[in-house]
Design a protein around this nucleic acid. Sequence first.
DNA 1: CTGAAATGTTGTCATATGACAACATTTGCT
DNA 2: AGCAAATGTTGTCATATGACAACATTTCAG
Lengths: 190, 190
Amino acid sequence: MNSLSLLDFLKKNILLNDEESKEVAQFFKFIKVRRNQIIEREGSICGHFYFINKGCLRLYDIDKKGNEITAYFAFENSFITSITSLITQKPSRDILISHEPSELMVIDKASFFNLTEKYAPFRLFYNKTIEFAFIHAQMRIYSFLGMDGVDKLRWLLEHEPMLLTRISSKAVASYLGMTNSTLSKLKAKL
Amino acid sequence: MNSLSLLDFLKKNILLNDEESKEVAQFFKFIKVRRNQIIEREGSICGHFYFINKGCLRLYDIDKKGNEITAYFAFENSFITSITSLITQKPSRDILISHEPSELMVIDKASFFNLTEKYAPFRLFYNKTIEFAFIHAQMRIYSFLGMDGVDKLRWLLEHEPMLLTRISSKAVASYLGMTNSTLSKLKAKL
DNA sequence: CTGAAATGTTGTCATATGACAACATTTGCT
DNA sequence: AGCAAATGTTGTCATATGACAACATTTCAG
């Protein structure tokens, strides 16, 4: 059964009971994606949330100079989407891509927000998720605006070491706001 | 009467009726602060939300090198607080300071969250506020990681021009992630 | 009002990082 | 398995920005 991990998550992290968890899970659809597969593209209005059963996704943007800037990464047992486009309902600047072969549970925006209306714990979970996404973004601003390259790399080793083991250097560099050649040189320096 | 602006805000932006607005407003306390007065200090656990009746506040942090990094600014008719400390209930890295003589309506954390329980429109407003704070932080990451100084300044002129008219250059520089001397030179270049 | 402190401007200089390129390595398609 | 494309490494060079300092201007407290 493909939604085992989602059911677990609904029970343990969102604190729904068995019954509710099954009801909620019915609104999700299982999809499988290859490595480096684009899941949401730039220019479209994002209408889905993705729960990651297995694998990892990345949300990024392409700036005026043609360079990638990474918004964030997500791994198993977490949700990801282009929240900006989803909330504003404007065409997205973001691209959502898989970095490993992944198994996802997809839910459309309307169903998702209906669930936040119907199930108080689900709403609470959504609100907490946004709060922590904000705190994380804020921490990144604090951390990256002041630091030089070596310090950013050390920061990453301390706070999000998984990125360095599971994600391509190019994508990590785009998350740290530097080029891949600079990142490569910094890693050599240690 | 000091809470006129708050009452207006509760009615127009949060969509509470007259009765409800008055009830809600009772939980706020009026305070007046001078220019450059510290309202929340580093190291304490933040327990209040501040509605700005008049004036402007800034939330910032001091990094390892001793440089200021600004999280955000807020002007009249908006809320501000050290949301990270308030949510995590950990000692704050943030300092909240006034940049003009300001009139504030303060509410403690517990009362605030009680209001989100009691009044659905108030809860909705809080959730929307966090969503947009997140979107704003994300936009800043996108905008600032890739850009050089001139582009950041142009970005600011386009998106938040009020900062350049109402806020000291030093504080603006700390928002853009550059030194005040660099900002000064960039402004000279146009 | 007056002087002290904070802020803003401008200059010089050192340095971290981007741009670009050559090459090595890994990945992915058929 | 084998070739093409993407990614990673390393080098050289140019440049934007930080560090620091001198000075001008503004702000603020007594």
